[in-house]
Nucleic acid binder design. Sequence first.
DNA 1: CGTCCACAGGAATGACGGGCGG
DNA 2: CCGCCCGTCATTCCTGTGGACG
Length: 407
Amino acid sequence: MGKSVLDDVFDNFVKGVKLFKDREVLRHDYLPNRLPHRENQIRLLGVTVAPVLKDARCSNIFIYGKTGTGKTAVTKYVLSHLETKAKEYGAQVKFCYINCRMTGSEYRVFAALSQSVGLSIPFTGLSTGEVFDRFRSGLDQSRILFIIVLDEVDALIKDRGDAFMYELTRINETLSKSKVSIIGISNDLRLKEFLDPRVFSSLSEEELVFRPYDAGELRNILLDRSKLAFQDDVLSDSALSISSALAAAEHGDARRALDLLRVAGEVAERAGAKTITEDHVRQAEKHIEHNRVIEALNNLTLHSKLVLLSVYHLNKSSSTTGEIYDIYNELCGEMGAGLLTQRRLGTLVNELDSMGLVNAKVVSMGRYGRTKKIRLEISRGLIKEVYGSDNRFNQILNYSPKSMHKT
DNA sequence: CGTCCACAGGAATGACGGGCGG
DNA sequence: CCGCCCGTCATTCCTGTGGACG
């Protein structure tokens, strides 16, 4: 039996220094039992929600804050404590946590709500109104105080409108045996601009704002977590500081900080190091970004890939929608793919922009019209790397478009 | 100072695959 | 099985617009 290349990998893993004690602690879905620097928010949310223990409906609450400021963690923390207290006092309280961005549509939100009051709803087939009616009657039957947590509602409201929110905020008027309270969580602080004022006012009976963490606070959070995550004396002080600093620069995102630390640990472990250094954190930063882009690149639809490759081919510091459409047109012909409209291409470009693969800005060139200036945001090498290994795209990658030397 | 380019991007509508309830 | 509804992608039609040019 020959020596496998894997022997090294496995040996290294077993014999090498173990850095992690418990890697799960650094994942963002992990709910710690201490949330440093959020004592105020915990108390406020607790106070607001407490009336349900005496069988009274609590106020609706609106929570604002950017990603990684602890909104979700605090909410889950408070509600899980509330749940155990409710059992203790025999209060009929139930809650349902829904991440609206993951759930995706109002239909599915109502379906999820229905499920949590014990109804089973097909994932398609019914009209949204029907699902809502079933949910309402199912809820009324169960005679409870129902707390609905709508995490990342801004995502849903922005592309579906706030009609479903309006229905939800008014549901109590038609319930006789149950009561509903809503906790809305938004990443976007300007959400009220998108909301019907009636919805907004009934939703924000209480408001809670989560400020971003500063570097010092992030440091404490990481320190706390790293004690559980790593073996003693594994994490260097400078690695800790740089992680907090990097995440603080990025709107004080604790999630980001935890990711950095976890990946840095993995990088260090793979390198066989016995401590995690500042350099490992910097490598982790690149690593995370690299993976993010590669994953995005692979998951694009055919036409989005072609649009991206058109930008790649133009190879200018910035190109306009029209220019890109010409190249895209050629690439479609080359591949025998159906051609989308320029209108459609516009929104695909915008999608690529929000994924950070491309940068698109509308500019006016006066007499020469108004268009989007589009620029590649990722390295050309990365595109070669990902699409070069795909036979279907290899020829497209090397294809040289005809309409290139026009200005 | 008005014109007019080269699009932006909203609204309505349709085609399609999937799945229901009756 | 039918008629209806879902979400998704795409088209068609449309009105809006910043600013260099004349």
